[in-house]
Simulated assay, not measured.
Amino acid sequence: MTGPPHPVWTALKTVGRGAVALLILFEQWGWLPLARALGQLARWSVVARLERRIAALGPRVALAVLFVPALALLPIKLAALWFVALGRVALGLAVLVVAKLLGTALVARLYLLTQPQLMRLGWFARMHGRWIAWKTRIVASLVESPGWVAARAWALRVRARWPSR
Results as ranks from 00 to 15, higher is better:
Val61Ser: 12
Val61Tyr: 06
Val61Gly: 02
Val61Glu: 12
Val61Lys: 12
Leu63Asp: 06
Leu63Thr: 08
Leu63Trp: 11
Leu63Lys: 10
Leu63Pro: 02
Ala64Arg: 13
Ala64Gln: 14
Val65Asn: 03
Val65Arg: 06
Val65Phe: 08
Val65Lys: 09
Val65Cys: 11
Leu66Phe: 06
Leu66Trp: 04
Phe67Asn: 14
Phe67Ala: 14
Val68Arg: 05
Val68Cys: 04
Val68Pro: 05
Val68Tyr: 10
Pro69Thr: 02
Pro69Cys: 00
Pro69Asp: 00
Ala70Gly: 15
Ala70Thr: 11
Ala70Asn: 14
Ala70Lys: 11
Ala70Trp: 13
Leu71Glu: 13
Leu71Tyr: 13
Leu71Met: 12
Leu71Asp: 10
Ala72Asn: 07
Ala72Val: 08
Ala72Gln: 09
Ala72Pro: 00
Leu73His: 07
Leu73Pro: 04
Leu73Met: 04
Leu73Ser: 02
Leu74Lys: 11
Leu74Asp: 07
Pro75Gln: 08
Pro75Val: 04
Pro75Asp: 05
Pro75Trp: 06
Pro75Asn: 10
Pro75Thr: 09
Ile76Ser: 03
Ile76His: 03
Lys77Tyr: 09
Lys77His: 13
Leu78Lys: 11
Leu78Trp: 14
Leu78Met: 11
Leu78Ser: 09
Leu78Ala: 11
Ala79Phe: 12
Ala79Trp: 09
Ala79Ser: 03
Ala79Val: 05
Ala79Tyr: 06
Ala79Leu: 14
Ala80Arg: 01
Ala80Pro: 00
Ala80Thr: 00
Ala80Trp: 05
Ala80Cys: 03
Leu81Cys: 13
Leu81Asn: 15
Leu81Trp: 15
Leu81Asp: 14
Leu81Ser: 14
Trp82Leu: 10
Trp82Lys: 09
Trp82Ser: 11
Phe83Gly: 04
Phe83Asn: 10
Val84Asp: 07
Val84Glu: 12
Ala85Asn: 15
Ala85Tyr: 08
Ala85Cys: 09
Ala85Gln: 15
Leu86Phe: 10
Leu86Arg: 14
Gly87Val: 06
Gly87Leu: 02
Arg88Phe: 07
Arg88Leu: 10
Arg88Asp: 14
Arg88Tyr: 10
Val89Asp: 05
Ala90Asn: 10
Leu91Ser: 13
Leu91Tyr: 07
Leu91Phe: 08
Gly92His: 04
Gly92Gln: 05
Gly92Lys: 05
Gly92Ala: 10
Gly92Tyr: 06
Leu93Gly: 10
Leu93Cys: 09
Leu93Asp: 05
Ala94Met: 07
Ala94Val: 12
Ala94Gly: 12
Ala94Ile: 08
Val95Ala: 02
Val95Trp: 02
Val95Asp: 03
Val95Gly: 00
Val95Ser: 02
Val95Leu: 07
Val95Arg: 04
Leu96Tyr: 14
Val97His: 03
Val97Ile: 13
Val97Ser: 01
Val97Ala: 14
Val98Cys: 02
Val98Asp: 09
Val98Glu: 02
Ala99Gln: 03
Ala99Phe: 00
Ala99His: 00
Ala99Ile: 00
Ala99Glu: 00
Ala99Cys: 01
Lys100Tyr: 12
Lys100Ala: 15
Leu101Lys: 02
Leu101Asn: 01
Leu101Tyr: 11
Leu101Thr: 03
Leu101Phe: 05
Leu101Gly: 01
Leu102Trp: 03
Leu102Ala: 08
Gly103Ala: 00
Gly103Glu: 01
Gly103Asp: 01
Gly103Val: 02
Gly103Tyr: 01
Gly103Met: 01
Thr104Gln: 06
Thr104Pro: 04
